[in-house]
Design a protein around this nucleic acid. Structure first.
Lengths: 194, 194, 194, 194
DNA sequence: TATGAATGAGCTTTCATTCAT
DNA sequence: CATGAATGAAAGCTCATTCAT
């Protein structure tokens, strides 16, 4: 077959199948055989591209995180106003979670107890986001838009809040734009009547 | 020994050992043998008190959730002002997480992929908290303290934020009182300068 | 309590309970705990009278075999005519099987694979019966009542036939006397029309 | 190797090994590992072909019963005279027992306490044989060869007698033809001198 | 390269047996 | 004597991984 799919194609296919299965069943209940079936390849083929189940999981997860970061980096133009940045962040996060439910589910749930490596990877990504958000908060304080608050704490709270909204039990049914606006509105203005 | 441990004590001992091990390794990587060793009993003894590994996990988890709920119910006096209620909630939550790191860790991480039953249990507890918080927000709106916001969304955001602050990566090093105050301050007043 | 039951009483109680349980579930599926419950004694008490599960089984089985032999010895008066002896044997066997279904069931089914000792015990009893029957056949030949046949073979066949009739699937519903007569009639006269 | 074993071969190999081990030790004392060793395969391989130990046992047993039935059906030509039919039956039974001692041993001993399914299977086969024999007796009565006897009882007795002769303790040392003749002779003519 | 039959380490669970009371 | 809570050896079964084809 000369018009074969490009080289990384089967690897991709396996990783996507893995994301689906891992998201649905978790790392320990997912069977390599099932992932292989889902990817429509033989069980042995998985081991042609990944050294182990853990390796497949890690690679899949890293790809997911990379995609998240990439999406964020692409969409968070520096020229946006601070308020717009937050709204944009929430929108992108919610949209990512909605589009990539599989990967999002895996990132959300399965990181503490799979392997220290994996835990490391996710916590690093988490720290990076917090850092970015804290930086934006700091920027707001410096430009006089925000009042004096603990930026790290606020960043943690903000990400936690957004994360909770994006969770399956949260409000992610309708359009994401208004929800993103609301979230940012609540966070920036607080809920007390002035 | 004449001052023997009271009845049900061994069950407690096993559950506490289970909490430690499950928190550290997660459900699937925890071995019954290790839990038995940690509890300083024989492997078979675990099965005298629990029908299976899953049963032990569920019972331990339910006990943890019950403890959380109980603590909350005991400490959230209805006569507190709304602001004080939120501060109290954050304080109690953070304190619980700090005191019962094992159980908190288990509740936080291991619920999706252990069993539908367990998932059910945790999500129910989660819904209950959200409901309580949303009710408090509603109360604030009715009394004119809070502005018109989506109470469910706000409750989700608030719990998410608190949850994030309580997570191992969050800020829970120093005294909890000031942190609780700060969290509530940020949430009530927002971060924008008026 | 000075008017206590005699010494062997509890031992008997346990053995009878064992017979019931072993008969119903077989050796390997019977649990010591269940036998203890059936005998209305504590689990540990079983070990006061028997050194092990196998010991209990063996003792119970030997008691059953002894009872069978004893019944046979008591009822098979030497002064009976040969024909009467056979009828008597069949009747006693069928009655024993009917009265002591538990023990009979155990003897019938559970002897090959419990222990070589047990197998030995039962096969010895079996050989003894065959020998007795063969002797009676020989007696018949010598007195001119029976024709020249292989006594061992005939004894084996006869016991096999009686055994089959006594099995749960066989004909043991109605009165045993006529059945015993029929069995002996068939065996002595054959089934061919003369 | 180019002349590989045909498909289903390994399944056969495992079933034959199982027959040997089960016959020697009984169901409960047989370990999967030992059967695997006997079959010269890995422990896990057994589970590639059978879902459980019980499944392996059942399948093996059914194959044995099928073989018995098949042998009987093939060899019991309807055109045989009644007397020849009985002789043929005894000969086939004894030969089967001699050739397939493993399977015969399993069928003879292990059916009550393995599983209701297994019990069902064996008792059905037993009933079928009894029915066939009773039919032949009835045929004999109708054609005037046999005297008026209870066919079911006689069939039970006959099979019991043959079964006993075929048992390991019975007479199955020498040639089977003369033994079969003797058995049938005894049964048809009886043992009384006319 | 792609495959899936074969494997065995490792797990949960059972239950005969012990022994402190 | 009587007990039953405690125990751990032992067995069935799973599934990540290998490797001959």
């Amino acid at each position: 077959m000369f018009l074969n799919l490009n080289a990384g194609d089967k690897k991709q296919k396996i990783m996507m199948a893995a994301a689906r299965v891992f998201a649905q069943k978790g790392f320990h209940k997912s069977k390599i055989e099932e992932i292989a079936q889902e990817a429509d390849v033989g069980k042995g083929t998985v081991y042609e591209y990944f050294t182990s189940k853990l390796d497949l999981f890690s690679k899949m997860l890293e790809a997911g995180i990379w995609l998240y970061r990439d999406t964020l980096a692409r969409e968070m133009k520096p020229q946006l106003t601070i308020g717009a940045k937050f709204t944009r962040f929430v929108y992108i996060h919610l949209q990512f979670v909605q589009c990539h439910q599989d990967i999002a589910g895996v990132i959300r749930q399965e990181f503490l107890h799979v392997s220290p490596q994996v835990q490391q990877t996710i916590m690093e990504a988490h720290r990076e986001i917090i850092k970015m958000l804290a930086g934006t908060f700091r920027e707001g304080i410096e430009t006089g838009s925000f009042r004096q608050i603990d930026c790290e704490l606020a960043a943690g709270m903000f990400f936690g809040a957004v994360h909770a909204v994006g969770a399956p039990t949260g409000k992610t049914a309708g359009d994401l734009e208004p929800i993103a606006s609301q979230v940012v509105d609540v966070f920036l203005k607080g809920i007390e009547k002035k």
